[in-house]
C-alpha cells in the first residue's frame, strides 16, 4: 500500500462485466462510481466530462475489453474521438491492435499497460523531484491524477520541503475540486489560488517551479493541455521560473493542426449558484504551449 493515496490515481476500474467510473463532477463532496455496461453509457460519461485525463484512457481500454464483441476497435475509437476530439484515442487503438496481433488476450494487454504506465509515473516523479529546489514551491493547474502524491513522496525521501499552489482551473474547477482535495486529504501542504493570481505569486517569488500535465505532445515537445496552461508557461518564462510538462507518447505531428475542443458555452457557467442564460461565451477547453516556453518534459514512452 502506498503511503499517500488518491482515488484519482485509478479513477476507472473494471470489475467483472462492469466498468466503474469515479464521477469527478461530484468531487469533493461525494465519491460516486458510475456503473457502465454499454458503450453508449461510456460515451455519455465522457462527453459530460465525468472522467478525463488518465480516466478517459482507462475508460477507453476497459470499453475495448468489455464491448469488443459488439463493436470493432475502430468503431470504439471513432465514438471516443467524437466525444473528446483533442485527445488521441487513435493512438490507444493502434497500441491495442499492435499488442493483440499475435493473439494476446486484450484484458491482459490492458492490465500490463496500466501497471507499466503507473511504474513510469512513479519513475518520472523520482527524476523530477531530484531536479526541484529545496524548498520546492510548485504551481500547478488542473489535475494530474494523483501524480503529485508520488512527487511529494519523492521530495520527502530527499528531505525537501514543499508547498503546492493550485490554480483553481475555471470553469470546471479541477484544481479546487480534485487536486486540492487529493492533496489536503493526504495532509500535503497546498494553497488554492484564482487562476489570475499566478503572475503576482511569481513576482513575489512564492513560486519556483511550474508543473503541468499534457493531454497531447509532439516530438518537438510542444504540448496541448487544459486551458490556462499556456499563460503559466509565458509568465514562468518572464519571471525565469522553470516550467515542467509531464508528457506521454509523443507523436510526429504539427501541434497547431490538432483541433482544440470547444465546449458548449453554458458549461462556462455550470458551477455558479444561479442558472445563467442569454450570455454569449467562449470555451476552448485546451491551449497550446510551444517547446520554447517549456524548460523540460518528463516523458512516458
Amino acid at each position: 500500500m502506498d503511503k499517500y493515496y488518491s482515488p484519482l490515481l485509478f479513477p476507472v476500474r473494471l470489475e467483472d462485466d462492469i466498468i466503474l467510473v469515479l464521477d469527478e463532477t461530484e468531487l469533493p463532496f461525494e465519491e460516486v462510481f458510475i456503473p457502465v455496461k454499454e458503450l453508449n453509457e461510456a460515451i455519455k460519461i465522457l462527453s459530460e466530462m465525468r472522467t478525463r485525463a488518465f480516466g478517459q484512457v482507462l475508460l477507453f481500454f476497459y470499453s475495448a475489453v468489455l464491448f469488443r464483441k459488439k463493436y470493432s476497435l475502430d468503431e470504439i475509437v471513432m465514438r471516443f474521438k467524437e466525444a473528446r476530439p483533442t485527445f488521441d484515442f487513435s493512438f490507444l487503438g493502434e497500441l491495442l491492435k499492435k499488442e493483440t496481433k499475435e493473439g494476446k488476450d486484450i484484458e491482459e494487454v490492458v492490465n500490463h499497460f496500466i501497471s507499466y504506465f503507473d511504474m513510469q509515473r512513479k519513475n518520472r516523479m523520482k527524476k523530477l523531484a531530484s531536479n526541484l529546489p529545496n524548498p520546492a514551491k510548485i504551481l500547478t493547474i488542473c489535475n494530474i491524477n494523483g501524480e503529485l502524491l508520488y512527487l511529494y513522496e519523492e521530495l520527502k525521501n530527499l528531505e525537501k520541503e514543499v508547498i503546492f499552489y493550485l490554480s483553481e482551473t475555471r470553469p470546471y474547477l479541477q484544481g479546487s475540486r480534485l487536486t486540492f482535495w487529493e492533496l489536503i486529504r493526504n495532509n500535503i501542504p497546498a494553497k488554492l489560488i484564482c487562476d489570475n493570481q499566478a503572475a503576482i505569486l511569481m513576482q513575489e517569488k512564492k513560486i519556483n517551479a511550474v508543473i503541468v500535465g499534457a493531454d497531447r505532445c509532439n516530438l518537438k515537445n510542444d504540448i496541448i493541455n487544459k486551458i490556462g496552461t499556456y499563460p503559466l508557461a509565458r509568465l514562468a518564462r518572464y519571471f525565469d521560473i522553470p516550467f515542467y510538462a509531464l508528457t506521454q507518447y509523443p507523436q510526429d505531428l504539427n501541434i497547431d493542426s490538432i483541433s482544440i475542443e470547444e465546449r458548449p458555452e453554458q458549461e462556462v457557467f455550470m458551477f455558479l449558484s444561479k442558472k445563467i442564460s442569454g450570455i454569449r461565451a467562449v470555451y476552448p477547453s485546451f491551449d497550446i504551449t510551444k517547446n520554447e516556453f517549456i524548460t523540460s518534459t518528463y516523458e512516458i514512452k
Binding site: S167, R170, P171, C194, I227, G228, V268, R280, V282, Y283
Partner: peptide, 11 residues
C-alpha cells in the same frame, strides 16, 4: 460582448 474565464485569455 462575449464572456470568458480568466484562464482563457492566454489562448
Amino acid at each position: 460582448f462575449f464572456y470568458c474565464t480568466d484562464n482563457m485569455l492566454g489562448f
